[in-house]
Amino acid sequence: MIKIEIQDLHYTYPGGVEALRGISLTIKPGEQVAMVGQNGSGKTTLVKHLNGLLQPTSGSVLIGGWDTKKAAVAKLAARVGYVFQNPDEQLFSSTVGMEVAFGPHNLGYGDEKVSALVKDALALTELSDKTATNPYDLSATWRKMVALASIISMDTEIVIFDEPTTGQDALSVARIANIIAELRKRGKTVITITHDIDFCAENFERVIALSQGQVLLDGTANEVLGQENILAQTYVDPPQLTRLGKRLRLKETVRNQEEFLAALKKK
């Protein structure tokens, strides 16, 4: 059971951009968290600190008690999996099967365990029929699925998805929602960055909104996503049905179709 503790984290890129300006957060084991916020607000920079891809300029990040400044990146990799915003930064193997097997192999798992993990990850992402395909012969949307599979196969307790639904159609967004639900069942901690606020509202209990390198809001989805004026500071709109509910003067904040219709019936 691995907890994430971030204390007063600051990060300045080598060129001088101050991307994170004092972030403190705790994420409990098994939590499902969505992260939202304006372009450039620091979401990607923040999550890259969780697996040691970036090191704090000041402050600290503890992953199950391990300080990322001291822990070896290879050891962190067994705890935290990160799916890049752009899959092309992540994929390098010549077949989907090899790509998805790379991570667990690298963690030192035996052949049998690796093949079981690969099989599971491919099934979850619906890639089982594409194991022999070169990822670069797939469309960008399927490449994104390969990127997901190659992290899921590492079976880490913490999984981070950086904008998984970008450019995906309705079917594929539903597939990603299923993957997240399955990881929740397995007790994984899932952190997902997204601009798709409806997707966020429908699949996450906790939402963190970043703005200019700081935490603007952090709470349950209904608490955070109902705050239209504060969210606007970081260029985020509430979900469609939340906005509609407000305009119809429904008593409570609603965030999905079920809640919306229930509130409408009561009115």
Binding site: G37, N39, E163, T166, H195, Y235, V236
Partner: peptide, 13 residues
């Protein structure tokens, strides 16, 4: 071709 796929919500609008 999907020019706002990575843009924040209000930026998209």
């Amino acid at each position: 071709d999907e020019p706002t796929s990575q843009m924040d919500p209000i930026g998209t609008r």
